[in-house]
């Protein structure tokens, strides 16, 4: 098939960027989108132009590295699909595809399509864990977890940390990512002791980088793991409850 690409090129974090157009006259519909960029890069190198920088690694939709706005949608037009799992058969022959990096204040562009998503790690740092130092665990079967709970936790834990939710959200909110991480741990029995502090700290950290959620629901549609915005409701509820619970815990200390 024949495709035209309009790709955002930006030499560095402080450089001004612009779109550049490239013609890809002969590509196969069986190609993945990243293979299309690979092919473009081979052509660029041949023509002594610097290749397009972009993040990718597993190419199986699990590492969360790949990150592109394709025709105005995070990860492109296929639902529940990361960029690396998007195949060209989803596009119309002869069409023009515009590719842009994630845009959010907390995701500064490093180069071309590559952005710095460290802020998501900082949210985890502030509470996205269960404090269980190595060696201190009881036998695994001592902690019973109802199947439904394990399944729900797994639904949330499936998040790959790609940041598409932020990219897609009109407010650059990281609510879906944070909600998924919080729900994963807050649903499980192991996560209960730190539940209220966790949600408080993670939400506070999230808000120091990202926008606020006004329930557009765009994130859910962009999410390659189709994490449900129901988890956002859960996050909000836990945050509300945490105000009381933490106060109570603190007052117990006198």
């Amino acid at each position: 098939m024949h495709l035209k690409l309009r790709v955002w090129r930006q030499a560095g974090p402080t450089a001004t960027g612009a779109f550049e157009s490239y013609d890809m006259p002969e590509v196969s519909a069986e190609m993945s989108f990243l293979e299309l960029i690979d092919e473009l890069n081979e052509k660029l190198i041949e023509a002594n132009k610097e290749p397009v920088a972009f993040d990718h690694d597993c190419r199986e939709g699990i590492c969360g590295s790949c990150s592109m706005m394709i025709n105005g949608q995070a990860h492109g037009p296929s639902r529940g699909t990361a960029t690396c799992q998007l195949f060209l058969r989803k596009f119309v022959d002869g069409s023009e595809i515009t590719v842009e990096p994630w845009r959010a204040g907390a995701f500064p562009v490093i180069r071309d399509l590559s952005t710095d998503r460290t802020a998501l790690d900082h949210i985890i740092e502030s509470g996205g864990f269960i404090s269980a130092p190595t060696g201190s665990a009881p036998d695994a079967n001592l902690i019973l977890v109802p199947k439904e709970v394990a399944d729900a936790a797994m639904d949330a834990a499936a998040c790959i940390g790609c940041g598409a939710c932020v990219a897609a959200c009109p407010n650059s909110a990281a609510q879906l990512f944070t909600a998924a991480k919080v729900a994963h741990l807050n649903l499980l029995p192991q996560g209960q002791p730190e539940r209220w502090n966790r949600v408080q700290n993670m939400v506070d950290t999230m808000e120091s980088y990202f926008g606020s959620c006004t329930n557009h629901g765009e994130c859910e549609k962009a999410c390659p793991k189709e994490i449900s915005i129901d988890f956002i409701a859960l996050l909000n509820k836990d945050y509300l409850k945490a105000q009381w619970k933490n106060r109570k815990l603190e007052s117990q200390r006198g």
Binding site: F129, I130, A132, T134, G135, S136, A137, P138, D139, A140, N141, I143, L144, V145, P146, K147, A150, D151, A153, M154, A157, H184, L185, L188, Q190, G191
Partner: peptide, 19 residues
């Protein structure tokens, strides 16, 4: 397995809550 379960790895469970 003990360590990972304590960390909150959502391993598959039986209906009785066991691994």
């Amino acid at each position: 397995i003990d360590q990972c379960a304590a960390q909150g790895v959502p391993f598959a469970r039986e209906y009785g809550g066991l691994l």
